[in-house]
């Protein structure tokens, strides 16, 4: 077994096939049924690109995921906590991830996950109205958004203005289908990029197919 480091706590494990994995923060437990791989004195959790968009971006060759050990992350659209659990692995015990999710039903596994992992801070609230939760969320190093809304770009910019540190980084997963079903996805991505360019510096963008259909992830940094 061959292990190559991508960045903090993210590794490529090459056995027969190359798989992406993060170091398990709570050894012995699998969060959503993913494979656990023991090597040396560490335990790794497989990070499936079909289920997690950040993993898909790394699989597609993007290396500079600026989430590090000890980072604080604002995660909008946390869902059941699949990706959040890996972000929690990466940032480690000193980091903080605010996991915002609107749906109560979906939020239940997220809260149960947060009980096991002390660095996950669940917030069951609308990501578009986080002004109300200003006192609960401190400024963060990284903002990640994965919500299927028509005005997702606007929501991202608004939250970055509110919560992103001046030297902070961010990433947004744009689902072209939820902005406009009938338009050409490439055109939507191009337009979204233009809007983001006005506010941020674009660090890179990755198309996530074949792992995620019609998705593109755009990485930004706050200084313009």
């Amino acid at each position: 077994m061959e292990i190559t480091r991508v960045s903090d706590s993210i590794f490529w494990i090459k056995n027969k096939n190359r798989i992406l994995a993060t170091v398990n923060l709570t050894p012995g437990t699998s969060v959503y049924g993913e494979r656990l791989i023991k090597h040396g004195n560490k335990e790794y959790r497989e990070w499936n690109p079909n289920r997690s968009k950040i993993a898909a971006a790394i699989y597609k060759g993007y290396k500079n995921i600026e989430i590090h050990s000890g980072s604080s992350v604002l995660y909008l659209g946390a869902s059941t906590g699949t990706t959040v659990s890996h972000v929690s692995d990466i940032i480690g015990e000193k980091g903080v991830v605010y996991a915002v999710e609107i749906s109560e039903e979906v939020g239940i596994p997220l809260v149960l996950l947060a009980e096991k992992r002390k660095n996950i801070f669940p917030i069951i609230y609308d990501a578009a109205k986080l002004e109300d939760k200003k006192n609960d969320i401190e400024k963060v190093d990284f903002i990640y958004q994965d919500i299927a809304q028509k005005n997702q770009i606007e929501i991202f910019i608004r939250n970055a203005n509110l919560f992103l540190k001046s030297n902070g980084r961010g990433a947004i997963a744009i689902k072209a289908r939820s902005i406009d079903v009938l338009k050409d996805p490439n055109e939507i991505i191009y337009e979204s990029r233009k809007i983001l360019e006005k506010r941020f510096k674009i660090e890179g963008s990755v198309r996530l197919d074949p792992f995620q259909k019609d998705h593109t992830m755009i990485f930004i940094s706050n200084q313009k």
Partner: peptide, 14 residues
């Protein structure tokens, strides 16, 4: 920092 307060309020809103 402790996430207990957040878990509690999240549980309440759920």
């Amino acid at each position: 920092m402790d996430n207990k307060k957040y878990i509690e309020s999240a549980k309440k809103s759920i």
